[in-house]
Design a protein around this nucleic acid. Structure first.
Length: 666
RNA sequence: GCCGGAUUAGCACAGUGGUAGUGCAGCGGUUUUGUAAACCGAAGGUCGCGGGUUCAAAUCCUGCAUCCGGCACCA
């Protein structure tokens, strides 16, 4: 066996070193600066410890803070370990389980000691302080390969039942490693890690919250305490992140919804929205916009029943697969006597619709359809109810009553690709009108599903091919396939929007379904005169009006483009002598279709400017004696640094009318 | 549904066993004001709901509801 190995560095240069030389040593031989900066290495592409001996000829890349993605992953992973060590140091008897890096930090799931109860946020300051001690101690992190037997014995011996279970379950072909922190603490971990605990910045992390989390993500298992932190390379990054969180909190649609008087929620109807006049203006604009879009795209709008017999839901399969999310209603006159149960034991059941698809099939089934009728696109602003778990409800984003922009396209096999492509184009146009970029994902068959494997193969292939044909299955569109995430009846293409501050939201979807037409016996007469099954494409672009408006509120931070703004202009007076003039201006604005209000209150103009600015009114038209005499207004635009502009009323109206035109009508 | 936290005036919040408070909004008055908060006054509460402990409960205990942060769920 040769004692030398050949190392190829990033710049292509090569050097011979003794077998077992570490990347750290090579970094040191290149220069002290690099030795200090090197956090880890990639050997033949694999991310490894800086102290990992090199055993064969290899390509070597040294990882420094400049390789931000790798570096963040490494430090976050280290923070997670230090967190676990700190918790065990402070709370002996705590069991550790699992602690990965996340998108902006890390967490560790731990089981508190029997006498302690779950950890709370009150515990965090002490844990943070202990973590800083461990970082200050700069304990070397040392990797060792162990056998499964060693691991199980060690964990079982320490009373770490979760780790022991985990060690026993790890796959046979995996090299099992532990990392020592100094000589007194170790965790089972795949690595890699930095060379020592002192390599992370003690000022660049913060423990943020504590929550419950099930062991191995399964509801049937024990509930652990999950301690979350955010972690970065340096304090500047941490501060920037904390600032971003503050900015995101300011955009919270629940907060803005209250500030702008758009909607409210209350406990007597939890999970269902009370839309206020201002909020419903936005809804109406979206509804009108969507109607124009679907009219153009050859859809037919329908309206279907809110409540249908349970037998219908049994036939569609929802009763079996979806009942726990449905609101059921006895089909019986309730008992009006004081005594006795509200409904009898013999009551038949009905259910509020959780989806619109069965009703659309029932419309399709009326009369005989021929191949000439296809593709038939049935659209509905469909109001659905789903009995969501209480813990899932969240503002407008997750509600129990919502209205989908839902349509079902009944078509032949050979029409699927064209229909999906047309849908891609429609979705593209609509999302761009709102200023979103997006990525497309294909969610593949879930475990709990209807239909044969052949059918799923076919359906998945069709959707994939359609996206490829549309030229969207590319990196630019974030193309990705997500195993196990499809609906129970069909795979789905998903559109994930990216909003103004970089967060993503899954909204649009199209799914190709052969199950429901079969179950509800939908058919058409083909050219051959025989009966055939249509394929059914389920599709939505907003997803639900509620959620889409929630997303828009956060995307625009409440500063809606003019066509969506609840109040488009306020005419505010400086002196009461201008009241009559202000009223006349508002009349003219309204006559031109602008949503305008007067503000004649007995307040200083400073006060009115401040109030309407905070209220996110896009245009403030200030009028005093001068404007009243000259027939002008002083236009002050929200978010504009420039000063007011004095304009004639007609010019202002022309400008606002142009700006308030919905994007599809421009 | 699970873990933790919260719930006090329209809103934001203070109040740890002894007469429920502050700011803003709203209401009344004064002021007629030129681009991000004029001044004065009066009013506003079943302290989420139920039960318990206590001479006395917003405050302690308990059950429930809703909300918040996660987990699980998300057709």
């Amino acid at each position: 066996m040769t004692q030398q190995v050949k190392i190829t560095l990033l710049d292509g240069s090569q050097r011979e070193v003794a077998r077992g030389t570490t990347p750290a040593e090579i970094a040191a031989s290149i220069g002290p600066g690099l030795a200090k900066a090197a956090l880890a290495a990639r050997i033949d592409g694999e991310l490894v410890d800086i102290g990992r001996p090199i055993e064969a000829d290899a390509q070597l890349a040294l990882v420094t803070a400049r390789d931000e993605k790798d570096a963040l992953e490494l430090v976050r992973h280290d923070y997670a370990h230090i967190l676990a060590e700190a918790v065990q140091a402070l709370f002996p008897g705590t069991q550790i389980t699992f602690g990965p890096a996340t998108d902006d930090g890390f967490y560790y799931d731990v089981a508190p000691p029997a006498d302690h109860g779950p950890f709370t946020e009150d515990d965090l300051p002490a844990i943070e302080a202990k973590m800083r001690e461990i970082i200050a101690a700069d304990k070397p992190l040392r990797r060792e390969v162990w056998t499964r037997q060693q691991l199980i014995e060690r964990w079982a011996g320490q009373g770490e039942s979760f780790k022991a279970e985990w060690a026993a379950a790890l796959p046979d072909d995996e090299e099992l490693t532990v990392y020592w922190s100094g000589s007194d603490w170790l965790d089972m971990c795949r690595g890699p890690h930095l060379a020592s605990t002192g390599k992370v910045d003690p000022q660049a992390f913060k423990l943020t919250r504590v929550s419950g989390a099930y062991w191995r993500g399964d509801q049937k298992n024990a509930m652990l305490s999950r301690i979350y932190g955010t972690g970065w390379l340096n304090k500047k990054q941490l501060d920037a992140h904390l600032l971003r969180l503050e900015e995101a909190a300011k955009r919270d649609h629940r907060k803005i919804g209250q500030e702008m008087d758009l909607f409210h929620l209350q406990q007597e109807a939890h999970g269902s929205v009370f839309w206020h006049p201002q909020g419903f203006v936005i809804w109406r604009q979206l509804e009108a916009y969507m109607r124009r879009a679907i009219d153009d795209a050859g859809y037919n709008e329908v309206k279907t029943p809110q409540v249908m017999d349970a037998r219908q839901w049994e036939q569609s399969g929802h009763w079996g697969k979806y009942r726990e999310n449905m609101f059921v209603i006895p089909d019986e006159v309730p008992n009006v006597e004081d005594e006795g149960p509200l409904v009898s034991d013999e009551a038949e059941w009905m259910a509020l619709k959780p989806m619109n698809c069965p009703a659309h099939v029932l419309i399709f089934r009326q009369g005989i359809k021929s191949y000439r009728d296809l593709p038939l696109r049935i659209y509905e602003n469909g109001c659905c109810h789903r009995n969501e778990p209480h813990g899932a409800l969240h503002g407008l984003m997750r509600v129990r009553q919502f209205t989908q922009d839902d349509a079902h396209i009944f078509c032949r096999e050979d029409q699927i690709v064209d229909e999906v492509r047309a849908f891609c184009a429609l979705a593209d146009r609509i999302y761009k009108d709102f200023g979103f970029t997006y990525s497309i994902k294909l969610a593949l068959r879930p475990e709990k599903r209807f239909g044969s494997d052949e059918m799923w193969d076919l359906a998945e292939t069709e959707l994939r091919n359609a996206v490829i044909a549309a030229g969207l299955a590319t990196e630019e569109y974030g193309w990705e396939e997500l195993p196990g995430e499809g609906a129970f009846y069909a795979p789905k293409l998903e559109w994930h929007l990216t909003d103004a501050i970089g967060r993503t939201w899954q909204v649009g979807t199209i799914q190709s379904d052969r199950v429901l037409p079969e179950r509800l016996d939908a058919s058409y007469v083909g050219e051959d005169g025989a009966r055939h099954r249509p394929v059914m494409l389920h599709r939505a672009i907003f997803g639900s009006y509620e959620r889409f408006i929630g997303i828009l509120i956060e995307h625009y931070a409440g500063k809606f483009p003019l066509w969506l703004a609840p109040v488009q202009a306020v005419v505010a007076t400086i002196v009461s002598d201008a009241d009559e003039y202000a009223k006349a201006v508002v009349e003219k604005l309204r006559g031109a279709g602008i949503r305008a209000e007067t503000d004649l209150r007995n307040e200083k103009i400073n006060y009115k400017v401040r109030e309407h600015s905070l209220g996110r009114v896009p245009n403030l038209l200030v009028v005093g004696r001068r404007e009243a005499e000259e027939g002008t207004v002083a236009l002050r635009r929200l978010g504009s640094d420039e000063h007011q502009k004095v304009m004639s009323v007609d010019d202002v109206i022309a400008q606002l009318v142009a700006e308030a035109t919905p994007p599809d009508l421009r």
